[in-house]
Simulated scan of single mutants.
Amino acid sequence: MRRPTLAALTLACLTVPALAQDNAAPVAGAEAGMKMANTATVKIKYATVKPADVMSSKLIGTTVYNNKKETVGEVEDLAIENGRTITGVVVSVGGFLGLGESYVVLDPSSVAIHNADGKWAVYVDTDKDTLKNAPKFEYSKKKS
């Protein structure tokens, strides 16, 4: 019983539905999520992904729309605090063909994701000017 519960908690911490930010307490004695360390600290475990789960690869590159269905940006990345909780959605705004764009980090609770016929979309309640004037995030797509 403990192993499926741990797998479910781990999956909940790593999948995008965590954007809803459920504050459920972890199972006693179990630590969910990835660890920040320079070596592995736990024996390998496997998880089951449910059909309703959203993979981050489906969101990266997804167009961000406002409630008027206007394009206001594109999802570039997800910020994950200490390998456990999605704390930000990095969105590129402005620019043309990658020139002059800037980045902002949105709180996951202000982002809605939607899938219609296999096409993903992200919605925020704002406009282009508000995002262009939002606090900028220094972001490099490099993995180093």
Rank of each mutant, 00 (worst) to 15 (best):
E101Q: 15
S110R: 15
S92T: 06
D117M: 14
V111G: 07
V90F: 04
G83L: 04
V111I: 10
R84S: 11
F96H: 13
G83E: 04
E74W: 08
S92K: 12
V89H: 01
D77S: 07
W120I: 08
D77W: 03
N82L: 12
V75W: 00
E81G: 01
G88N: 01
V75Y: 01
G88S: 02
S102R: 15
V104W: 05
V111A: 04
N115V: 14
V75M: 00
L106V: 08
G118V: 03
V93A: 03
G98L: 06
L99I: 15
G118E: 06
Y103T: 05
E76Y: 02
L106C: 07
G94H: 04
I86Q: 02
F96V: 14
H114E: 15
L106T: 09
G88H: 04
E101P: 05
V104N: 04
G98I: 07
I86W: 03
V122Y: 08
S110D: 15
R84E: 13
V104L: 08
G95I: 05
A79L: 14
A112G: 07
G73S: 01
N82Q: 12
V104A: 05
E81P: 00
V105I: 10
G83P: 05
Y123M: 06
G95D: 05
T85F: 03
N82K: 13
D107S: 14
T85I: 11
V89K: 03
I113K: 07
V75L: 02
G98A: 07
H114I: 13
S92M: 03
E101Y: 10
A79C: 05
N82H: 09
W120L: 07
V105N: 11
G98E: 09
D77T: 03
A112P: 00
Y103V: 03
S109D: 12
V89Y: 02
D117W: 11
D107R: 13
W120V: 13
I80L: 09
D107Q: 13
L106F: 06
A121I: 04
T87L: 00
Y103S: 04
S109F: 10
S102I: 08
A121P: 00
H114F: 13
H114Y: 13
E76T: 11
V75K: 01
Y103D: 02
P108C: 06
S109C: 09
G118Q: 09
G118C: 03
G94L: 05
V104G: 08
H114S: 15
S102F: 10
G83F: 07
E74V: 12
G98Q: 10
E101G: 09
Y123F: 14
G88T: 01
N82I: 04
V93I: 13
A112N: 10
D117T: 13
S102P: 13
K119F: 03
G88I: 00
G118N: 11
V89F: 02
A116G: 09
V111P: 03
W120Q: 10
V104K: 07
A112D: 12
K119N: 15
G98D: 09
K119Y: 04
I113S: 10
H114M: 13
G98N: 09
Y103I: 08
A79W: 07
Y123R: 07
S110F: 11
G73D: 01
S109K: 15
K119R: 14
G88M: 01
W120A: 10
F96E: 13
S102C: 10
V122F: 07
N115G: 08
W120E: 07
